[in-house]
């Protein structure tokens, strides 16, 4: 069992940051704010993918691979990838 938000997604901090950015972009309603929010989200997703490489090396491919098969990366309740 993985307690807390790490049982829902593997990167809850980035999930929160991306959600906040996208909601703010939509609320402001300008093209630049929404494009900026999408680009920041893309950057966060790339950063999370890169960190998964570090985590696999640090925690071991078996342990972290098993966690990746159980818990989705950024969006809760999606099939894990």
């Amino acid at each position: 069992m993985t307690p807390g938000p790490y049982g829902l997604v593997r990167h809850p901090i980035y999930t929160g940051l991306i959600a906040g950015m996208l909601v703010t972009g939509v609320a402001v309603g300008t093209v630049t704010a929404m494009l900026g929010a999408v680009l920041i989200s893309l950057g966060m997703w790339l950063k999370a993918r890169m960190e998964e490489g570090f985590l696999t090396a640090e925690l071991g491919a078996d342990a972290y691979g098993s966690y990746c098969r159980r818990v989705p990366m950024l969006i809760p309740f999606l099939p894990p990838t």
Partner: peptide, 24 residues
Amino acid sequence: YRFPILAGAILFLPLTGKVLGEKP
């Protein structure tokens, strides 16, 4: 990842929209 985050942050800033004269 640093480049899209930086570019996104610049676009996200309110003053960028103001300089470009954007309307919601």
